[in-house]
């Protein structure tokens, strides 16, 4: 029973296994992922406010800046790079169509939040969509087009 400043953990990212990798205990998951070349996950505020680092951990959306890499031990993670199925294709087309990628900084977080929203298979009103993405900042303020893209995707898949 002793504490350490680095730990060995095993987990999977986008289906790829990371076995027994050593991580510093102070490193958050977003920094670890980015250090492995998975730079799709962006870091804005590092205090949970902006949502750019949103990933999926064991099936639910979480902020990867507010999860330590050590806490990911045993979990299954999906980042924006691993969100590449048919649904993602629809989301991406709609984001492009409505010009919902502007500078692109918030996009990975917006896409991962969209993934969680549409996985509920609920038909949401525009107000409800706005409420669902209220934890993601877009500093281009392109919310209108982002809501348009999410709304169209929801209509397509339901």
């Amino acid at each position: 029973m002793s504490a350490k400043n680095s730990v060995n953990i095993s987990f999977s990212v986008n289906g790829e296994n990371f076995d027994d990798v050593t991580v510093p205990t102070r490193q958050h998951l977003a920094d670890y992922l980015r250090s492995q070349g998975l730079t799709g996950t962006h870091l804005g505020c590092e205090q949970g406010a902006c949502g750019a680092c949103t990933i999926e951990m064991d099936g639910v959306a979480v902020r990867s800046c507010l999860v330590l890499a050590s806490q990911a031990n045993g979990s299954s993670i999906t980042t924006v790079e691993g969100f590449d199925d048919e649904v993602m294709q629809k989301v991406k087309n709609n984001f492009l169509k409505h010009n919902a990628f502007q500078c692109g900084f918030c996009s990975p977080g917006m896409l991962m939040t969209t993934k969680e929203i549409i996985s509920s298979k609920k038909k949401l009103s525009r107000d409800e969509i706005r409420s669902e993405i209220s934890g993601n900042y877009c500093r281009c303020t392109g919310y209108q087009s982002i809501v348009d893209a999410i709304e169209e995707t929801i209509n397509e898949i339901n």
């Binding site: 002793s2 504490a3 400043n5 920094d31 050590s70």
Partner: peptide
Amino acid sequence: MKAPDFSYFEAQNIEDAIKYKSEDDEAV
């Protein structure tokens, strides 16, 4: 910013966590 350095202990049960916490005032 990034977190300062700290050590990490993954408790398997409440007893371990309590014991560890009682031995280190600065642990959280």
